[in-house]
Design a protein around this nucleic acid. Sequence first.
DNA 1: AGTTTTTGTAACAGTATCAATCACGATTAC
DNA 2: GTAATCGTGATTGATACTGTTACAAAAACT
Lengths: 123, 123
Amino acid sequence: MGDGQPVTSDWIAGSVNTNPVVVRRLLSALAKAGLVSSIRGSAGGSVLARPAGQISLAHIHRAVDEEEGPALHNQTPNQACPVGRGIQPVLVRIIDRAEAAKEAVLATTMLSEVVAAIRAEAG
Amino acid sequence: MGDGQPVTSDWIAGSVNTNPVVVRRLLSALAKAGLVSSIRGSAGGSVLARPAGQISLAHIHRAVDEEEGPALHNQTPNQACPVGRGIQPVLVRIIDRAEAAKEAVLATTMLSEVVAAIRAEAG
DNA sequence: AGTTTTTGTAACAGTATCAATCACGATTAC
DNA sequence: GTAATCGTGATTGATACTGTTACAAAAACT
C-alpha cells in the first residue's frame, strides 16, 4: 500500500487478525476522507491517495473517529438550575481545547514516520 | 460542596437529571482519588477534600476514566507478520504522548475556574 | 462472453458497555 | 429508635461494535 501495489482487504484482515468486512468498513471511512483510494475488481485493493509523508495521524484519527456531537452526557442537565444550565457550554469549551491539544500532537506524526518506526522495531 | 455544606447524591442527581446511584458511583471514584470525601448517615453528603483551586480537571479526568489497558484492538494482531508484531508498541507510544498532551491542557484548568466560568455564564 | 477476484454495503447475531433502577446493609444525626 | 444518607451488588434495557454471511457491482484475464 505504501508503494504502487494495491493491498486487498483480505490481506490486511489476515495481518490484523480480523474480518475483511471490518477492514473494508474502515477503509471506506478513510476513502471518504481522501486518504486512500480503493480499486474494485480483480487485482483491486487499496492504495494511499497521497504519499505517506503527507498523511498525519490526526488525519486518520479524524477520518475514523467521526463523532458528531460532543456527547458530554446523553441526558440534558436540569435547565432550571443555574449550574445545570451553565455547565454544558463551559465544559464543551475546555474539552474542545484538550481534544485540540491531542490532535496537535497527532498532527506532528506522519504515517511515514510510523512505518519507519515499525521497520526499526522489526529490525 | 464548594463551601462546608455536604451535598447529597439526590440533590446532584436532580441537577444533572440522572439517578442518585449513578452519582454515588462517580463520587465513589472521586473519593478513592482523594478529591472528595463522603459523609454517611443523616445530614450526610459529599464535600471537596481540598479547595477547588487545588483540583485540576486532569485530576478529575484521571479519577473517573480509570482505563487500565490502552485497548488498541481487542484482537491481537498476527505476530507472524513483521508489521503486526511491530505496530502495537509504536502506536501505544504515540497515543500515550497524545493523551499526555490532552491531560496537560486539562491540568492547567482548576475546578475553581470552571465554577467561576459557570457563575459568569449564568450571569 | 464468461469466469474470477475484489470492493461496497446491507442484514443479522453475539457481545461488551453503560445508564438506570431496585434493593438492602451500614452509618450517622436528631 | 427513626429517618436520612452513603456504598454496593444485581438486574434490566439501550446502544454500539465486531464478526459473519450474502450479494450486487466492477474490473481484469482468458
